[in-house]
Amino acid sequence: MNRVVLGLSYDGHDFEGWQTQPHGRTVQDRLSKAIEAIAHDTVSIVCAGRTDTGVHARQQVVHFDSAVERPLTAWVKGVNNGLPPTISVKGAKLLDPEFHARFSAVSRTYRYYFYSSPVRDPFKRFMTWVHYPLDLQAMRSASACLLGTHDFSAFRASQCQAASPVRTLHAMNLFEETDHCYFEIQGNAFLHHMVRNLMGSLMEVGLGRQPVNWLKQVLESKNRSLAAKTYPAQGLSLWKIEYPEQYGIQDLFS
């Protein structure tokens, strides 16, 4: 069996998340059909991180096993021929069976894009619109308490299936561009809706509705009902999956 590893990018607007569903309107469903057309067999695809409905991926990594011999170009161009324009295989490689798209990853990086403006901009469809001005420095200060290892139950969706709510955030930075901003968040793993729930609470601070130290109190409470609402999906992108250098995963996206 060959372990085939693919690097993907996709626009999540038209999909109900990554994971396969009976109705077939997911990224995994569309990718499986395109791969099976090349493999002439069924495949079981494993991804680095499952994205929710409407969430995008700049760098998603998947693997599957296949007994057929195909040139790497078939796993890229051939599979892309069977995909909609909103999903693209960026690269392919063969790796030893010890590689696992999910369990070999050492960290994951998400970005949440947003902009503040009196009116909505239709060209910013990958960002979340905030009607009122934001205190970005207050948001930076509030986010500092999230770094490190914590119980993130206060920012965990009720349907989350993770065995433990404990996660480690390695970095969380707010960047300002000319007409938009984004948080870049790197962690070992993330709970269901965790980033969007964090953004909802950070926005409460940025809008002046809550003080800077409120976020730390919510985190320590481990109580989801004390945190703010889940923020929209369109601003969130799975930005990068980090692996040990020996696997050369970044080559898939170069």
Rank of each mutant, 00 (worst) to 15 (best):
R3L: 13
S104T: 06
L6Q: 09
R196W: 12
N2E: 15
S158W: 12
H192S: 07
E16R: 10
R120M: 13
V212D: 03
M172Y: 00
E36C: 10
G200S: 06
Q59S: 03
M127R: 09
Q19I: 15
S225I: 00
A154N: 03
G82E: 07
V55T: 05
G24M: 12
D29I: 12
G235R: 11
N197H: 10
V4Q: 11
A92W: 07
P97N: 13
R50M: 11
V5E: 12
C47G: 14
G49T: 10
A157K: 04
E245I: 02
L169V: 09
I45K: 10
Q250K: 13
A74F: 09
L8G: 03
L169H: 04
S9M: 14
V55M: 08
M139D: 06
L136W: 12
R196F: 14
V68R: 04
V119D: 06
F126W: 11
E177H: 10
R125C: 05
H131R: 12
L215K: 04
Y231M: 15
K90S: 05
L72I: 04
V55I: 09
L174D: 07
D135M: 07
C181R: 01
L8E: 11
V79E: 02
L95H: 02
T230N: 14
H193K: 00
S107L: 08
N173W: 01
R224E: 01
M1Q: 13
S254F: 09
V218D: 05
I249T: 06
V212Q: 07
H23G: 13
K90C: 04
R3T: 08
R156N: 05
Y132A: 10
I241G: 05
N81L: 00
W129S: 00
A171E: 12
Q250M: 12
T51P: 02
R30D: 08
F253P: 09
E177S: 09
R3E: 04
Q161R: 13
L215A: 08
W129L: 00
V5L: 08
V205G: 02
V68H: 02
M127P: 02
W239Y: 15
Y132K: 05
R120Y: 14
C145E: 01
P85V: 02
P211Q: 14
K216V: 01
E36M: 12
F126S: 06
Q159K: 00
R167G: 11
F152Y: 14
L147N: 06
A48E: 04
V55H: 09
S254K: 07
T42G: 14
P85Q: 09
I87E: 03
G24V: 13
A92S: 10
A92K: 08
S221D: 03
Q210L: 15
K33H: 11
D135K: 04
I241Q: 07
T26G: 08
L136F: 13
Q210C: 13
W129M: 00
M172I: 07
T53W: 11
F152G: 07
L252T: 03
L226N: 01
V195I: 14
S88L: 04
R156Q: 11
D41Q: 12
G248W: 09
I241L: 12
V89W: 10
D121W: 09
Q210N: 14
L215Y: 02
N173R: 11
F183V: 04
M127C: 10
Y113D: 02
